[in-house]
Design a protein around this nucleic acid. Structure first.
Lengths: 224, 224
DNA sequence: GATCCGAGCTGACGACCATTAGCTTAGAAG
DNA sequence: CTTCTAAGCTAATGGTCGTCAGCTCGGATC
């Protein structure tokens, strides 16, 4: 691990002179969760110590326990909240009505927008599932299945009504969900594409892949 | 961590009676790497101990050091090999010639096929980048950029020659790569879709998203 | 001014882990 | 039979980490 340099900040009580992280205005569960999220996203859950999280908001590791019950609860809260937010956005997209292709566009835009605008939540939510312990893990997996079903159902409806032409709606739904999830891995707020542009472009991609003709040549290139 | 149950196997020298994992025929660097790959894929690098890896092939943790130099080198080897294999497959797809849409199909099929057929390698390769230390990390990131460039170049050529109609080739290349990478997260060899079918379907999706018309209604549903 | 309490802090405690050191054995080599 | 060595093993080393205990300070309350 070459990434050390935690600059522990030797100053104690009587000298709030310098020190990089500088205490937050208020230290509460929400502040801690935000700091934890950032660190989980950039180092991973297991590589992040309670001391790291404390340092990020200007207190020591053990002091965190005045506000949160454990590191695992911190992760669980982040992941459950993330799934709930995704599902709420998806539901809002569905509730907005319109024909099936429009609903699909709204769903995909919501999906991608979330993965860009809340890339840390989404990234942690996807990467740390096996570090989540049991009350949480099943809960998150359940929510995840609900979310997947939302998109798949729209695709299936589109196929039934003749708007879409895919042989395997489930496969197509995975493809669309996964390409959106990927955004959380590379998106940067100061990057060349804004979240809104990406969401729009990806919704286009999704509609295209569901509505195109059967592609060019029918032969697989199987040989490996 | 509820997933314990390592069944340490109390038998020592004089009794090769039972014991779950049963020693492999030969214990060499390749066997160890295979066991490590499996465990890294299902638990993550940091959650896997050298003792776990040893147990998987029927020896103790410290004995591994007769064959490999460190856990980190194990991870580095896996990830570098994975990127090299991906690049080799991609290059083979390009070398097969054909027009741009056919090349694209071959590239995407190779990409998806690898992520299905070698899901553990691909999964670890994507998930453990920040656990990779410095000689390896840069090497893998370099290889990854090379790989990305391969697909992007084909898309750009297709746009220039009028085969494809996407505004942002880079964005489209990310979408295609990410949807393929997602396969390594959910694919199961005994699942309902074979790797070959998935590769073919995904190549279709890719071609559709690059060649479709500009989608239905032009308005973004931006409002959040 | 005395008291109280929330919220820091330091210093354990107990567990785990990668890696090293040094012992031992089985089988090859002579 | 003796010797050597590859490849196991156990035990230790040095480190880290989550969490708990107990101390202390500053400000609010009376």
């Amino acid at each position: 691990m070459t990434e050390a340099l935690h600059d522990e900040d030797g100053s104690r009580w009587a000298g709030r002179d310098a020190g990089q992280p500088e205490r937050q205005q208020t230290v509460d569960a929400r502040t801690i969760s935000a700091a934890a999220l950032k660190l989980f996203a950039e180092r991973g859950y297991r590589a992040t110590t309670m001391s790291d999280i404390g340092a990020a908001i200007g207190i020591r590791g053990p002091s965190l326990y005045r506000h949160v019950t454990s590191k695992q609860v911190l992760l669980g809260g982040i992941m459950v909240d993330t799934m709930r937010a995704l599902i709420a956005d998806q539901q809002a997209a569905l509730d907005a009505g319109g024909d099936v292709p429009l609903q699909l566009r709204r769903i995909v835009e919501a999906h991608v927008r979330y993965h860009a605008a809340h890339r840390e939540q989404a990234f942690v939510g996807n990467r740390e599932i096996e570090n989540l312990e049991q009350p949480y893990r099943d809960q998150v997996l359940r929510l995840r299945r609900t979310y997947e079903r939302g998109l798949r159902t729209v695709i299936e409806r589109g196929c039934a009504e003749g708007d879409f032409t895919v042989a395997e709606p489930r496969l197509a739904s995975y493809a669309i969900l996964d390409m959106g999830m990927g955004v959380s891995a590379w998106f940067r707020p100061d990057g060349p594409h804004g979240a809104e542009r990406i969401a729009y472009a990806y919704a286009d991609y999704a509609i295209r892949m569901l509505t195109g003709w059967s592609s060019s040549d029918g032969a697989t290139t199987a040989d490996a």
